[in-house]
Amino acid sequence: MFVATPAMPDVTMTLLCPAQDECSLAIYLSGFQQAIIGIGLVVMMPIIGNLSDVYGRKGLLTVPVTLSVIPPVILAYRRTKKFYYFYYVLRTLTGMICDGGIQCVALAYVADHMSQAKRASAIGILAGVGSAAFVCGTLADHFLSTSQIFLVATIAAVYMQIFLEDTTRIKEYSIEEQPILRNNEMENTELDCETTKNIKVFKKVPSLKDIICFLRKSPTFPLAASVAFLNSLAEGGEQAPFQYFLKAQFHFKKDNFADVMLIANICSATSQLLLMPMLAPLIGEEVLLCLGLIAGFTNLLIDSVARKVWIPYTAALLPIFTSLVKPSIQSIVSKQIGPSEQGIAQGCISSISSIAIILSPFIYCPLTALFLSEKPPFRYPGLASCALALLG
Rank of each mutant, 00 (worst) to 15 (best):
L223F: 13
Q239I: 12
C213T: 14
V227P: 06
Q239Y: 12
P277T: 09
M276C: 09
I199A: 09
V227I: 15
C193F: 04
N231P: 02
D259H: 04
M276A: 08
E185Q: 15
K209P: 00
D210P: 04
F229G: 07
K200V: 06
M276L: 15
N183I: 01
T220E: 15
A225K: 13
D192T: 03
A258K: 01
I199H: 08
K253R: 14
A248I: 02
Y244L: 12
Q249D: 05
N231I: 15
L262V: 03
E185G: 13
K204R: 10
S218K: 09
Q243H: 11
P222M: 07
D192F: 01
K204E: 13
N256T: 06
F242D: 04
K247M: 11
M261V: 03
V205Q: 04
E190G: 00
G237Q: 05
A264I: 03
M276G: 03
L215W: 07
F214I: 05
Q272I: 02
N188L: 10
F221M: 13
Y244H: 13
F250Q: 01
C213G: 13
N198I: 00
C213N: 12
K204L: 08
A264C: 04
H251Q: 09
C267R: 01
G237I: 08
Q243L: 11
N198V: 01
E238N: 12
A269W: 02
A234L: 12
I266G: 04
P281Y: 09
T196E: 07
P241E: 00
A248C: 03
P277M: 11
E194P: 01
N183Y: 08
T270G: 12
I199S: 07
L208A: 12
S271K: 07
M186T: 14
M186K: 10
Q239W: 13
K203H: 10
Y244A: 08
V201R: 08
S218I: 04
A228M: 15
F202V: 09
I199K: 08
P281L: 06
K197A: 10
S218C: 05
P241S: 02
V201I: 09
D210G: 01
Q272R: 12
P219F: 11
F245Y: 14
L191C: 08
A228L: 14
F242P: 00
I212G: 12
E187K: 14
N265L: 05
M276V: 14
K247N: 02
F221Q: 08
F250V: 03
D259P: 01
S268L: 04
T195H: 05
L223V: 15
L274F: 15
Q243G: 06
M278H: 14
C267G: 03
L223Q: 13
K247V: 07
K200P: 00
P281A: 05
A224Q: 07
F245S: 06
D255I: 06
C267Y: 04
K203V: 05
P222H: 10
A280G: 06
S218H: 12
E194F: 11
S232I: 03
F257W: 01
P277S: 09
L233Y: 10
E194D: 13
T189V: 13
P206T: 06
P241Y: 00
K253C: 02
Q272N: 13
I212D: 14
C267K: 03
F250L: 03
F214G: 05
F202R: 10
R216Q: 10
L208S: 05
